[in-house]
Amino acid sequence: MKHLGYTFEKLKIASFDFTCCEGCQLQLANRESTLTDFLELLDIRNFRELSSEQHDDYDIALIEGSISRQDEIERLQAIRRQAKTLVAFGTCACFGGVNSMKKKFPLKESIAEVYPGMPVQTMLVKKICEVVKVDFSIPGCPVNKEEVERIMVCLATGSHVTLPKHPVCVECKAQLNTCMFELGEICLGPITRAGCNAVCTTGKTSCLGCRGPSEEINMPAFVKLVKDRELSLDELQEKIAFYNAFDGFNSHET
């Protein structure tokens, strides 16, 4: 498309999955109202959920999932060598995600529980940025298709790619939701990055922070709020650890 004198090129894109449920990639085929327009932006080179064609001349690589095997590291490094822009796509890729739960137990125990009697090669989960350089992240479990569309449009038009810096509360209040804390639950909305349109809390489910921390979160104040309301610190700990997205923020602070 031509715009004000310069032409937009289609994005040569590929999508790859690692340790994940492929749910984020599936989101790309969602939101039918704009699906044809969305696909029109893309020149899909390699994406097994949408196309049987496979080419290796992509510019943008969407990486879904975290890394939990040695062969995944090698595959990812090869993708990095080809891609001009590598995107950590979804919570597992950005933070490790639910897969990181494994780190709470001895590895042997986990294998015995999940794959009894089977030889399985596995290691502790790595997020994508621990293995290769990530150009930017689109968090979410699953990703928000509306946001993905917005970001793809930014890439196609040469606009800056940004994520909201503020927490989910802003979007939650715009939905006129009753605060989950008022309903007696621990909700990670106040410390989680917005952009999901508060979809969970609108459905009366507490936020588990799949989009990771918003910028400059005030963890001590958040922990104090949980204590002051006489809610369970163990539950807080469990929620914060759920997606492994708050690594580095100590929720035991007093």
Binding site: L4, G5, Y6, T157, G158, S159, H160
Partner: peptide
Amino acid sequence: AGHVTSALFNLAEGAHV
């Protein structure tokens, strides 16, 4: 400097703003 000015720098003479 920012996002809009970067895009402006891609414009050619004759463009409408």
